[in-house]
C-alpha cells in the first residue's frame, strides 16, 4: 500500500472533493486476527465493535505502514473509538508508530455554523494531505449506479455484487461492471431478497441467499442506495427482507422495528436471522430460509 491514503469509518465518502485525485483505500471492513503475543488484544473489550478491533489489530500487524496517512471518518459507527484507542495505544507505546492518524469530523446539525465547521475540517485534511500527488479523479458514482442496476435486475448475484463493492473500496478503484456469465434463471426463480442490518465483512450470507433466490437490494453494504427504503423495496419488487446484526450490536437494532412495520405494511416477509458474526460461516446459518 504505497502512498495511499487509508480511510476508516463506515460510509466514508471516497468521492469527497477533499480526496479527489488521491490514491485512497477504504480499510473499514477488513478482518484481522490478533497476532500471537499481541500487546493490545487484552485491552480491547470483547464487545468492541468488530471493525474497530480489526483496524487496531491491523495497525499492530503493521498492515497499514506503507500508507502515507490514515484518516478516520468520525461519522462512521465506532470510528471515534477507533481513533481514541489507536492514538492512546500509540501514546503508550503498545502500537508501533506508522502513518499519521487524522480525525475527519463532521457536524451533525445544518446551518451556516455547521458549514463553516465542515469547511475547516476539510481544509485541515487538505493541508494534512498536501504533499501527496493527485491525479485525475476517478468516477466512482457512475459504475456504482451501473452495478446497482445490474443487481436490481438480478443480472448479478448478491455475493458477487458485494465482493465487487468491497474490492473497489479496498483498492480505491471504480467498481467493476463487467457482465457475469452465470445463468440468471436460477436467481430469478426464487424470492427477491433485500438484506439489511449491521454491516457485514464476509460474503457467506450473500452466497446462502444467492442459492435460494435473488438478492436484489443490499442495504447493509458499502455504497448502499440512499433512496427512500419503501421506494426501493417497491421498485425492486422485494418479497423477503432478511435482517441480521452482529452479536454486540447497539446501533443498527434501533432501525429494525421501523423496518418491520414498513415490511408489514407493504406485505413483505421479514426474516430476522438474529445475531450473526460480521464474517458469518456456513454453520452460523440455517439450512434454508424459513
Amino acid at each position: 500500500m504505497s502512498a495511499s491514503v487509508l480511510l476508516f469509518g463506515h460510509g466514508v465518502p471516497l468521492s469527497d472533493p477533499v480526496l479527489a485525485g488521491l490514491a485512497v483505500r477504504d480499510i473499514t471492513r477488513l478482518f484481522q486476527e490478533p497476532a500471537p503475543g499481541s500487546r493490545i488484544d487484552a485491552l480491547l473489550e470483547p464487545f468492541l465493535d468488530p471493525y474497530v478491533r480489526g483496524f487496531l489489530l491491523g495497525m499492530e500487524a503493521r498492515a497499514f505502514d506503507e500508507a502515507a496517512a490514515i484518516v478516520v471518518w468520525r461519522q462512521g459507527a465506532g470510528a471515534l473509538h477507533a481513533y481514541r484507542y489507536a492514538t492512546e495505544l500509540r501514546r503508550q507505546g503498545l502500537l508501533p508508530a506508522g502513518p499519521p492518524l487524522h480525525l475527519w469530523n463532521r457536524a451533525v446539525s445544518a446551518g451556516p455554523a455547521a458549514q463553516v465547521f465542515d469547511a475547516r475540517q476539510d481544509a485541515q485534511l487538505t493541508q494534512a494531505l498536501a504533499r501527496l500527488p493527485r491525479e485525475t479523479p476517478v468516477d466512482r458514482a457512475g459504475p456504482l449506479a451501473v452495478l446497482e442496476a445490474m443487481q436490481a435486475a438480478a443480472q448479478i448475484t448478491g455475493g458477487e455484487a458485494f465482493r465487487r463493492r468491497l474490492r473497489a473500496r479496498a483498492c480505491g478503484e471504480p467498481v467493476s461492471t463487467a457482465p457475469v456469465q452465470a445463468p440468471a434463471s436460477d436467481r430469478t426463480a426464487g424470492p427477491r431478497f433485500a438484506l439489511a442490518g449491521a454491516p457485514l465483512g464476509g460474503r457467506e450470507l450473500h452466497a446462502w441467499l444467492d442459492r435460494q433466490g435473488a438478492l436484489v437490494l443490499d442495504l447493509q453494504g458499502p455504497d448502499a442506495p440512499r433512496d427512500d427504503v419503501g421506494d426501493l423495496l417497491t421498485r425492486r419488487r422485494v418479497s423477503v427482507l432478511v435482517w441480521q446484526v452482529d452479536p454486540n450490536d447497539d446501533l443498527h437494532g434501533w432501525r429494525k422495528p421501523a423496518l418491520l412495520r414498513l415490511c408489514a405494511k407493504m406485505g413483505i416477509r421479514f426474516v430476522d436471522l438474529g445475531f450473526l458474526s460480521p464474517w458469518p460461516q456456513r454453520p452460523d446459518l440455517p439450512k434454508v430460509l424459513r
Binding site: 468520525r74 471515534l80 481513533y83 481514541r84 480525525l103 469530523n105 463532521r106 457536524a107 451533525v108 446539525s109 455547521a114 465547521f117 475540517q121 446501533l251 434501533w254 432501525r255 421501523a258
Partner: peptide
C-alpha cells in the same frame, strides 16, 4: 441520535441533536 429519533417519532416533539466532533 437513533434513540431520540424514536422519541421524536413517538411524541412528535421537535428534536435537536448536538454535534460531538472528536
Amino acid at each position: 441520535p437513533l434513540i431520540f429519533a424514536e422519541w421524536a417519532r413517538l411524541t412528535g416533539a421537535p428534536l435537536r441533536i448536538l454535534s460531538a466532533p472528536g
